[in-house]
């Protein structure tokens, strides 16, 4: 597969990244780029190593290989360094503060910038509420009492409170009702318009390819295919493996 040279310099560039759980290599030799202001997506079946990849990029898991953020190379980073570099992860399990209010969750999302004199927490909070009016309606409710879609919005909102340069989303549509999935992908498309770069990991390949600029197909811990999302969506192999057997459920998901 030939990778198209991105037009803008990559914000995140990964070279030859491997992650092992003991003797088992869950991710081997992955290279990928996320250019500034783009959406890159990583699709693939369950167990392909998608979540492991994001965990390694965020510094949650130790890894081998080079991770370059904005031209600064590091290997096996710590969470604190990736956060300082402007990277935010919305993990699959959302990791919300369930027994705290929606507003407290959001305010804490800005914690990493609380010493930054240029950071205006109130303004950012208004901005996030503007983007997710539902969160404003529920701002005094405990996070644990929200519905699945609202939790995903809160997880996204909390990540946005830290004004990240790159947002890494792990299966944002997982476990959500079809209509809510559509909302979530609309929000992702909108985020891109406001200049946030996104690395999106999804099992819902059809929706992910629709919203992304560039796509990587992960199989058994390796990049099996890559290319512009629109091209991959038409590639017969992808269609056969990920889009072909469209079940009614899938159709609803991407309607």
């Amino acid at each position: 597969m030939t990778a198209l040279a991105p037009t803008t310099p990559p914000l995140l560039s990964v070279r030859d990244l491997s992650v092992s759980y003991g003797p088992i290599e869950a991710v081997s030799g992955i290279s990928l780029d996320v250019p500034e202001g783009h959406i890159a997506t990583v699709i693939g079946p369950n167990g392909a190593g998608k979540t492991t990849l994001l965990s390694a990029l965020m510094g949650i898991l130790p890894s081998r290989g080079a991770i370059t953020v904005d031209g600064v190379e590091t290997s096996s980073p710590t969470i604190a360094r990736m956060i300082a570099a402007g990277i935010a992860l919305v993990p699959e399990q959302r990791a919300l503060f369930a027994t705290m209010t929606v507003e407290d969750n959001l305010v804490l999302g800005g914690f990493r910038r609380h010493r930054d004199p240029h950071y205006d927490a109130d303004e950012t909070l208004r901005d996030v509420y503007g983007r997710f009016p539902r969160l404003w309606e529920r701002h005094r409710q405990l996070a644990g009492t929200l519905s699945g879609g609202e939790r995903q919005m809160l997880a996204l909102g909390r990540a946005l409170m830290g004004k990240p340069r790159l947002l890494m989303l792990d299966e944002p549509s997982l476990g959500l009702a079809p209509l809510v999935v559509r909302d979530v992908f609309q929000i992702i498309a909108e985020l891109k318009r406001t200049g946030v770069s996104i690395l999106l990991v999804e099992q819902n390949a059809r929706a992910a390819l629709k919203v992304a600029d560039h796509a990587y197909v992960l199989e058994l811990g390796r990049v099996a295919m890559e290319g512009p999302a629109a091209e991959l969506a038409d590639d017969p192999r992808i269609v056969a493996a990920y889009l072909g057997k469209t079940s009614r459920h899938q159709e609803m998901l991407t309607a």
Binding site: A80, R94, F97, T99
Partner: peptide, 23 residues
């Protein structure tokens, strides 16, 4: 206070707290 909430957040969800930059 923000620091008090940050401590509470660490108690509620360690990963979440680390991801928002609470060391």
């Amino acid at each position: 206070t923000l620091y008090g909430r940050a401590l509470q957040a660490t108690a509620v969800n360690r990963l979440g707290a680390e991801l928002v930059g609470i060391s």
